[in-house]
């Protein structure tokens, strides 16, 4: 499905980019979530804030992704999802995900993460039951896709911290925003 020249997986790119120690990464993210919980107090607010932070990361990250990964324009949303799962996740998180559960018209799918470095050591205490600990990821995907003119809605369908057997992100394409040029032809 991927055009020739586009990498099928992010292994090669992952091998060449700079990396940090996994525990440093995990604990840094943990510290952020912990701080948000202290500052905002409400779990719902924390979810929102994480999503917003992810969004802000995503709108920048997509440029880096396109610059380094050499992927060419995706023909449809199916391919976009595959590229995110196979190349994007591998490149930035070091794990690859799989895409399943397509609906009939190809606008809604699930990205499934078997392994998630963000949640090493984490166990949700009773006081944080409503927390989507990895909500930053959904924000990243939403932000990144918005920058390449796709409005999406990303929600968590399964979460291992809540006792499920995998992480499942449901990505729903709301609409393709046609590219707008900021100038008129006759000007």
């Amino acid at each position: 499905m991927a055009p020739p020249g586009a990498p099928r997986s992010g292994d090669a790119i992952f091998a060449s980019v700079e990396r940090v120690n996994a525990e440093l990464f995990t604990l840094t993210y943990g510290a952020i979530v912990r701080q948000l919980l202290t500052d905002l107090e409400e779990v719902e607010e924390v979810n929102k804030q994480l999503d917003q932070m992810g969004y802000n990361i995503g709108i920048r990250l997509v440029d880096e992704f396109l610059a380094k990964s050499n992927v060419t324009r995706c023909v449809d949303f199916r391919e976009t999802a595959e590229v995110i799962a196979k190349v994007g996740f591998k490149m930035f998180l070091g794990v690859s995900a799989s895409v399943t559960n397509w609906d009939a018209d190809g606008t809604c799918c699930s990205i499934i993460l078997e392994d998630n470095p963000l949640v090493d050591f984490v166990e949700l205490p009773d006081t944080c039951q409503g927390l989507y600990y990895c909500n930053i990821l959904s924000g990243v995907i939403r932000g990144a896709l918005e920058m390449v003119s796709m409005k999406t809605e990303v929600t968590w369908a399964r979460d291992m911290l809540r006792g499920d057997d995998a992480f499942e992100l449901q990505v729903k394409l709301l609409k393709q925003v046609p590219e707008e040029y900021p100038y008129k032809d006759d000007e």
Binding site: Y29, G30, A31, V33, R34, F121, V122, E123, L124, C128
Partner: peptide, 9 residues
């Protein structure tokens, strides 16, 4: 140690 590494603990 694992408990201690949990950021929510």
């Amino acid at each position: 140690v694992k408990i201690l590494l949990n950021p929510l603990y």
